[in-house]
Amino acid sequence: MEPMLRIDALRAIHERLADCVVVTIMGAAAAELQEVGHRPNHFYLQHAMGLASSMGLGIALARPELPVVVLDGDGSVLMNLGGLTTLARYRPRNLTHIVFDNESLLSVGGFPTATSTGSDIAAIAAAAGVPHTSTVRTLSDFARAVDDALERNDLTTIVAKVAAVGPRGFVTDLALLENRFEFARYLRARRASAPAG
């Protein structure tokens, strides 16, 4: 069986992300999500490896009415394993944490990460206390896992095993600050349009 491509996985959930607040890591995930289709509800954290999940936690705690989806990677998660314990400790019900695991640091030369030698991020997340975790390897399983997580309304980590391939380049025409201010404006507008109560 050919391994799933991250860009195909992003295409499979792109429509579901339309109403979510999305935070991605740098590199291939950011470039590919922009290629599939940028929206103002996407924030691409183009550095600070490891902190996408912490940003997702900050948004989820600040705005519990909004579904938040973090698109993480194995290299980034491995830089902030302690952050999984913080996620689990506060267990934001509105946070879905997706980890694209290509078992390598693709954007910086493709060197293998520890998931290539057996470290299991879903098991680490479960042991950290994340209440719902899974590892998926096919597009249909991935799409179903994301659907389930968004409907479950509880903290979920989904590890999607993907091929170690990505786009040729990582610089897109979306400037970092343009993205940042557009995203903040989107979140302000969501508050303004929220029903009273």
Binding site: S54, M55, G82, G83
Partner: peptide
């Protein structure tokens, strides 16, 4: 938010700021 390591706090505060808190 009790952290495992302080750098997480940068991410949490960044998310909170963009979310208006």
């Amino acid at each position: 938010v009790r952290l495992a390591k302080e750098e997480e706090g940068v991410g949490i505060s960044a998310g909170a700021h963009l979310a208006g808190v």
